[in-house]
Write a protein that binds this DNA or RNA. Structure first.
Lengths: 352, 352
DNA sequence: TGTTAGCACTCGATTGCTTTGAGTGCTAAT
DNA sequence: ATTAGCACTCAAAGCAATCGAGTGCTAACA
């Protein structure tokens, strides 16, 4: 038995229906559809075949059938249509992005919000990943006696700033000197190339204020390390609107799983390598997520893929629509972030 | 009829029981308690009286009774005992605080986490409120051509830093100059004293680079404005563990209410005025919270109450324990934050 | 006079039963 | 190969009976 044209058409119809109703679909429902003119009995036979092939499942005898993960996989790979967004929708997205957002952080948060409100799923956005990015400038700014601000600037804008304690007696001049030196040595290095060895070499070379330098290096390491707060979540509640999560325990489980963001963080980081990724149900490494699907897209700064954004929903997700939205939002986000960086670049060029 | 000693004892017993079991308590349960030796019939009469007085409610005839908001109010005002924390518990709290936390932000987040895991309720911590704090230093640090970092330092450590665009052609020297000037003018002013008038005066006086100054002022205003992200939430899921929230709709409602943090933010800000505050059920302004109680405590930097922390739970909350924990954590937090600031102060003094 | 035993009563929760209806699988006719 | 028809299945909804924790009231008691 094989998967002929007609079986595919029927499978598609079942998936379409199930995505929207969330309840097992029976043969009569399909046979009533205008685009398929076969009696329910025929459909029934075909459905029986589809079940045998592993594309459909029956929650219990005498109920309709629901698509299996395998069916969704087939669906997204070959059956699905990716509807264009209407220009209204595109406008809506663009509009949400215009409000004064001068910090990268704000842009990311807003992206997550828009994404979840548009899709009605739970959304997540990875903040730009800096490891693949080049260091441009290091500056230690004295703010009060005993304290200074360490600013690490990358070619994607600000990377990180944090307060550090300075040793007693160090002068602003010395700090300035130190900044220049660090910048000289580390400029144009990719952040993930800067390792312990390199830093300790540097420390040895400088000699003076050893302890201070060490603590500086520590901080440096820390600011480069991936950190779990780098995922922005939004619309976690949306999941509770789906009948799949009408059970408190399930809901609690889901919320607890995404509350610790590590899994999501990992997923999004992996996803940064691919323009789109779709993970369906059991394809998820994490067993807690076996009833969910995750769809992601990347965004770039310039030509570098530097982060990703995605949505989490039940496996019967509206994959087509979600991909369209993700694609468009990824593009918008890329443009905005690239714009934020390029402004500086342009100014720089003009000055030179 | 009035509230005699015995009625109080019975009421207390009922509240105690209900706090731990969450199900209506009947006369027999109370009469079996060792500290009250009366028959169930007598208790029944007393309970009937307590109901008439408004301290008890009956979900339906022939079920036990549950305490009313009025009863909880009486309880926290006069009946409740505030158990000392064991030294183990105190140690546990202290220990959680030691891990490298060099940013105020980290301390706040950690506080929220510890608070929710210790109480098993939902916790929230207001970030230090800067309006009552004095400005110490303003610095504009050029980072690339066309961009700079605006750092506003207050006497409670860093207040805010953000990236700003600088006009074409402005030199680092000019920025340095500008920083010094702004610092001179605004030093020792409280942030909430710095108003539009003051800033525009300043702008008028300077003259040069007017447009830049204006955008600077805008940013300044924005960084002082209270902002909704200034509440750190933790353990929102904890609420779902209580039988009161076994209903998905209720849970969704609750989570949606606290997801928009405005209400919490407002509550915490108001609470900064009082060392402790307890709001029970209907005492909450927001009707969505009528089944919840909120308990808060303040924390200080030096001697200034500068923020507050609190927990949200069902009205049958373990008020005594919560207050003890909040009190101790508020104190710990105050010490840590004050320490973070004082380090600088001390160094400063030593240098002088 | 306050306390208690006793008893009838209430009412949500549980249990078991029936009914309903959407759906299936199979068979025989087209 | 398709379809009409029919017996069958089974979760869900509805319903009645029962259970039991709890009450209020009355009458007896110390």
């Amino acid at each position: 038995m094989e998967l002929d044209e007609r079986k595919l058409r029927i499978l598609q119809a079942i998936i379409d229906d199930y995505i929207h109703t969330a309840s097992p679909v029976g043969s009569r429902t399909i046979s009533k559809r205008s685009d398929i003119s076969l009696s329910s009995a025929t459909i029934r036979n075909e459905m029986s075949d589809l079940e045998e092939l592993g594309f459909l499942e029956q929650p219990h005898t005498s109920s309709g059938r629901i698509p299996s993960d395998k069916a969704y996989r087939l669906y997204v790979d070959t059956l699905m249509s990716k509807p264009e967004l209407t220009s209204d929708e595109m406008h809506e997205i663009r509009d949400k992005f215009t409000d004064a957002m001068d910090e990268v952080e704000d842009v990311i948060k807003q992206t997550a919000r828009v994404l979840s409100s548009l899709t009605n799923y739970t959304s997540m956005v990875l903040t730009p990943q800096l490891h693949s990015i080049k260091l441009m400038h290091i500056q230690i700014v004295p703010v009060t006696e005993g304290k200074a601000l360490l600013v690490i600037v990358t070619d994607a804008g600000i990377a990180k700033d944090s307060i550090i304690k300075t040793p007693k007696g160090i002068t602003p001049k010395q700090l300035e000197e130190l900044s220049r030196m660090l910048t000289d040595r580390l400029k144009n290095k990719r952040l993930d190339e800067i390792n312990e060895v390199m830093l300790s070499e540097l420390a040895a070379e400088i000699g003076d204020h050893k302890e201070f330098l060490n603590s500086l290096m520590d901080l440096f390491q820390k600011s480069i390390k991936p950190d779990n707060d780098s995922v922005e979540l939004s619309g976690a509640m949306n999941m509770l609107n789906f009948p799949e999560y009408n059970d408190v325990d399930k809901a609690k489980n889901f919320l607890a799983t995404i509350e610790t963001k590590d899994i999501l963080c990992k997923t999004l980081k992996d996803a940064t390598k691919l323009e789109f990724s779709i993970t369906i149900g059991n394809e998820n490494e994490n067993p807690e997520m076996k009833d969910c699907s995750i769809v992601t897209a990347t965004y770039k700064i310039g030509d570098n893929p530097i982060g990703s954004l995605g949505v989490i929903g039940p496996t019967r997700m509206d994959y087509g629509r979600v991909m369209s939205i993700l694609g468009y939002m990824g593009k918008s986000l890329s443009e905005i972030l690239t714009g934020m960086v390029d402004d500086g670049e342009n100014d720089k060029k003009m000055l030179e």
